[in-house]
Design a protein around this nucleic acid. Structure first.
Lengths: 357, 357
DNA sequence: ATTTTTTGCTCAATCGTTTGCGCAATGTAT
DNA sequence: ATACATTGCGCAAACGATTGAGCAAAAAAT
């Protein structure tokens, strides 16, 4: 008995030794060992009604024993379905995109999809390259948030010609009819500004982002409309346009705004408002008593500054989920049905930086 | 001539119409239109020396015209190389892993690899599932940072049996011989503690993380050795062991430590030290005069608190790159060569929270 | 002019799965 | 006992690319 075991062991060792890399067990191996045909095994594994329950049992048992893993490449090739989902983001660090991707990965894996991540690094050339890569990888859909330098749509048309569902999220090109998941940035700007007005602020400044991106344009419009609704004048000297929105540009914007003597600032970005906070502090101004502040994105650090920063939560994780859901829906519809927008409502998180009462 | 064109056009339109989904052009299509064999086209595209320059030209021109994209699934199946790289992280939001992934994606895409991201959500069951998924997707390698609940190694052995290179980063199981990229956490703890001693602190507390994870164990050891080197006693009442490291647990840990009257704290986490800062402030203690603080990870918000937090930078992006490099190297070596560790040196970023001079 | 070499390409098998069609064997109705 | 479904499975052709072996024609050597 012991001898037998040793021999067996030896044989296995020999086989493994010969094949060197111990090829993973394929459906063919199962078929041979069970005396079945490959197709029978395939059907058994896919729970085809034409296969008897007994056989299914046998197959599944052996599959587990031999540690069989289906080869997605082969199945994908045959079925024309790779079960891969491509995602393109400008960058992956930074809370917003990271959390959106978290949401995407969660929803996608529940639907049996794997997620391939690409970064455009805010560069349209990279973005084009990403598209090629993803198409070559035979992804079944592409979820993309545009790079800041993307002004034309050409590279996305290839995607649509291929019949690959395309879903944009957060960043979208104005004037294009596409499927997209968006935050109601207008509402975010409006809510935020109205809140400041309710706190008694009258000279409310605004840090605006690049206006060819819908998100920044809409935030600004929400700001303007809130002012108007409450009968406050719009003063262009109270608006600073920033190219990028970092702590540093926030500092600069605040410096630039000081002479106009604002009593509040609604910033399109948390990083920028954090910069403003630093400048105000160095200046000896009190927040929120002299200047109230609100930001956008509800970054983690908004709870860690002093005072804590009021901000607009963007529902990042829901955005990821929603994008995946929209993709799954488009896949069903096979390209008929007009483009649609899913709009998520933002939530104002009020903290000390804007509370005067 | 014009008629001919129209007819041709019509025919194409008809074909496309019939096939409904306008199948992407394959290598076979190219072959047919050029009157070549499939293999010839394949070799031309792969720049095989046996094909004449003239033919290569013809092929490549038509390929561009028809917007041909090679099918990675098919090529992968045949060659046994998917050009896919799997990554498993506990979670993707949070600066550290996000930046590491940025590094991974950068390095991987330069080597022609696509990256598939999975999250274990700090759950070993998920982690096992992730492994299955990635193996099914035929990834050529797996980069993984362990979930906090992973205590055994069984699911990774399958990976190695398959001959799939496995590289761990940052989080590693103690007492296992594996390939890994690590931060020198010991040095981080040592540097940080020594810095506090140099600032004149004598009763230095420590927020320690789960000790079965190497990173936290090593940070603690660095802390202990620095104390010893400078002749300071080790007081167990100055060490708080935390299960998770969040702002909230940091608050609790600080509360717990107050009676011991520390004059400094070296925290294994930035989030936790931010919590400590809040408690101290509420307490009326001054930072750094009464209690100096240092954290770990150099999170973005460390520059935004008041005072700004001293922290240890983990070289996240380099870690991602290094992990990919190690994977590429292992792939060459085909499994011979003993497991190796790549160790990155941390850098102490000194800020106001620990500067008494 | 014949043999040898080189050049440039084709043939056919292969990777692991899926799937339309067909064909026995068994069970049911007549 | 014959005809007709039904059940359970096998055969073989795909999917799109790669690759070793082979083969004809042109070029070079003898």
């Amino acid at each position: 008995m012991l001898l037998c075991f040793l021999l067996l062991n030896n044989t296995i060792g020999f086989i493994l030794g010969k094949e060197k890399e111990s090829k993973p067990t394929s459906i063919t191996d199962l078929a041979k060992q069970l005396g079945l045909s490959v197709s029978g095994v395939s059907r058994a594994l896919n729970n085809d009604p034409r296969i008897s329950a007994a056989t299914k049992q046998r197959v599944q048992t052996l599959a587990r024993q031999l540690n069989y893993q289906p080869n997605h490449l082969a199945a994908g090739l045959r079925k024309g379905k790779s079960k891969l989902l491509g995602v393109i983001v400008p960058y992956i660090d930074g809370r917003f995109f990271a959390v959106v991707i978290k949401g995407i990965e969660l929803a996608a894996s529940q639907a049996g999809f794997n997620v391939i991540i690409c970064q455009s690094n805010e560069d349209v050339a990279h973005e084009r390259q990403n598209i090629e890569t993803l198409l070559s990888a035979q992804v079944e859909g592409i979820l993309v948030s545009l790079s800041r330098t993307t002004h034309d749509f050409a590279h996305f048309e290839k995607v649509q010609q291929r019949g690959v569902p395309l879903v944009f999220f957060d960043r979208i090109l104005l004037g294009t009819e596409v499927n997209a998941v968006l935050l109601d940035d207008y509402a975010g700007g409006f809510l935020s500004t109205e809140h400041l007005i309710e706190q008694g602020c009258r000279r409310i400044g605004h840090f605006a982002g690049p206006q060819h991106l819908g998100i920044y344009k809409h935030r600004r419009q929400g700001y303007l409309d809130a002012l108007q609704k409450h009968g406050l004048p719009v003063a262009e000297e109270l608006i600073v346009y920033c190219d990028t929105m970092t702590v540093e540009t926030g500092r600069q914007a605040m410096q630039q705004l000081l002479p106009a003597r604002p009593d509040a600032i609604f910033s399109s970005s948390d990083a920028a408002v954090a910069g403003a906070l630093q400048v105000l502090e160095e200046q000896g101004s009190r927040v929120p008593e002299d200047v109230a502040l609100t930001g956008f994105s509800n970054e983690m650090f908004t709870s860690l500054t002093k005072p804590r920063l009021t901000s607009v939560d963007q529902r990042c994780e829901q955005m990821g989920e929603a994008a995946v859901r929209l993709f799954l829906q488009l896949r069903q519809e096979r390209g008929n049905a007009p483009p649609q927008h899913v709009v998520l409502e933002p939530e104002l998180r009020v903290r000390a930086s804007s509370l005067r009462t």
